[in-house]
C-alpha cells in the first residue's frame, strides 16, 4: 500500500509539472490551422461578391490571363504554384483560394445550402466571373483556365455556361462530370481497406476531435489529416522549389467540402451539361499513377469535349503533373505553352 501511495504521489507530481503550460484553445485560429485572410490582414486578398478571397497574381497585368482553379471543393492553390513559371513566359497568372477554402473567408454550411439548386453557380461560377472581372485590364484580354480535379469540373461547367468568357481550358483529371461519375470516382479514391492503417488514421481520430457543424478550425484540421492520408490517387509530397515561399502553410475548407457534397447529392449536377457549347480546343492531362484514373476512366470522362488534345503524364499521380516541379518543368509546362501558343 505504501508503494502504491508513493507511486501515486510521484505520478501526480509528474502530471502537475507536465501541466504547468497554459492550455490552448482548439478553436483559436493560428493554433492548429493557419489564420485566414479574415484574421491576418497581411495575406494578399481580393474582395468579390461579399467574400474576401486569398489571391495572388504574377506577370504582366495586360497579357493573357491564366486563372488557376484548385481541387476540392475545399482544397487550396498551393500545390499549383509551379504554374507561376508561366508568368516568366509573359502570361498573367492568377491564383485564388475559392470561397470557404484555403486561406479564404469561411462561411457557415447553411450559406451554401440556402442557395438551393443555384449553390454551385452562386458559390463558384459567380466568384470566378468576378475574379475575371477583377483582373482583366481590357475587354480583348484572353482568358485561359488552368484547372485540376474539382477545379477541372468547375472549369468545365463554367466553359459550358459562359463559352465566350474564356479562350482556353486546360484540364487535369476531373474526377467525374456527371454526378454518378463523381460518386464512383470519389468512392474509388476513398476505398480504404477495413484493416488498414490509413483507415485507422482517418477514423480513430473521431474520438479525440469532434467539430460542430460550423467549427471551421476543428473541421479544417481534421480534413487536413484525411487529405494527407490518401494514397490511392498516387500523390506524394508537393515539390514546389522556390515557388513554395508564396504560400507556406495550407488549410482545407471542410465546411464547404461537406456542404457541396450534400448539395451534389440533392441536385445531382452535370458539369458537362453545356460543354458542347465550348468549341475551342481543350488540353486534357491525366496521370499514370492514379489507381482510380485508369485509361478507361480518362477516355470516358474526356468523351464530352468536342475538341481536345489528350496527354498522359507518366510517373506521377493525381496532382503530380502540376505539383512536382521536375514534371511540371520538363513535361507539363512545354505542353501547356504549346497549347497556349495555338490559341
Amino acid at each position: 500500500m505504501k508503494i502504491l501511495k508513493t507511486s501515486m504521489a510521484i505520478l501526480c507530481f509528474g502530471f502537475f509539472l507536465l501541466s504547468c503550460d497554459k492550455e490552448k484553445s482548439i478553436t483559436e485560429p493560428g493554433n492548429l490551422v493557419p489564420k485566414t485572410v479574415m484574421e491576418d490582414p497581411t495575406i494578399p486578398s481580393v474582395n468579390i461578391n461579399g467574400a474576401k478571397l486569398h489571391a495572388q497574381a504574377f506577370g504582366p497585368a495586360d497579357s493573357t490571363l491564366i486563372v488557376c482553379l484548385h481541387g476540392g471543393p475545399g482544397a487550396n492553390f498551393r500545390y499549383m504554384l509551379n504554374c507561376k513559371s508561366l508568368a516568366d513566359k509573359g502570361y498573367r497568372v492568377i491564383f485564388y483560394d475559392q470561397r470557404g477554402s484555403g486561406l479564404s473567408q469561411r462561411f457557415p454550411g447553411g450559406w451554401y445550402k440556402n442557395q438551393g439548386a443555384k449553390a454551385i453557380e452562386k458559390t463558384f461560377y459567380d466568384d470566378l466571373k468576378a475574379i475575371l472581372h477583377h483582373y482583366k485590364t481590357h475587354p480583348n484580354q484572353k482568358v485561359v483556365l488552368l484547372t485540376q480535379s474539382w477545379g477541372s469540373m468547375l472549369g468545365t461547367g463554367y466553359a459550358g455556361k459562359y463559352p465566350d468568357d474564356i479562350d482556353g481550358l486546360i484540364l487535369a483529371e476531373p474526377g467525374g462530370l456527371k454526378w454518378e461519375d463523381v460518386l464512383e470516382y470519389v468512392g474509388k479514391t476513398r476505398s480504404l481497406g477495413l484493416w488498414s492503417e490509413t483507415l485507422n488514421d482517418a477514423a480513430y481520430t473521431d474520438q479525440f476531435l469532434t467539430g460542430k457543424e460550423n467549427q471551421h478550425e476543428i473541421l479544417d484540421y481534421k480534413m487536413a489529416q484525411l487529405s494527407a492520408a490518401n494514397t490511392v490517387v498516387g500523390d506524394i509530397k508537393s515539390t514546389l522549389g522556390p515557388n513554395g515561399i508564396y504560400y507556406q502553410s495550407v488549410r482545407d475548407g471542410a465546411v464547404i467540402s461537406s456542404a457541396m457534397f450534400e448539395i451534389g447529392e440533392k441536385y445531382k449536377p452535370d458539369f458537362s451539361e453545356q460543354i458542347a457549347r465550348f468549341q475551342k480546343k481543350v488540353l486534357f492531362f491525366y496521370s499514370s499513377n492514379n489507381k482510380a484514373y485508369p485509361d478507361s476512366w480518362a477516355q470516358k470522362i474526356m468523351l464530352v469535349y468536342p475538341n481536345k488534345d489528350v496527354f498522359k503524364v507518366q510517373g506521377v499521380g493525381h496532382s503530380g503533373m502540376l505539383d512536382q516541379i521536375d514534371t511540371w518543368t520538363t513535361v507539363t509546362e512545354p505542353k501547356v505553352l504549346q497549347y497556349l501558343n495555338s490559341l
Binding site: D21, K24, N31, L32, P34, A228, S249, V250, R251
Partner: peptide
Amino acid sequence: KVYADVADGWY
C-alpha cells in the same frame, strides 16, 4: 506539408 507554426500542447 501543412502548417509550420502549428502549436503543440494541451488543448
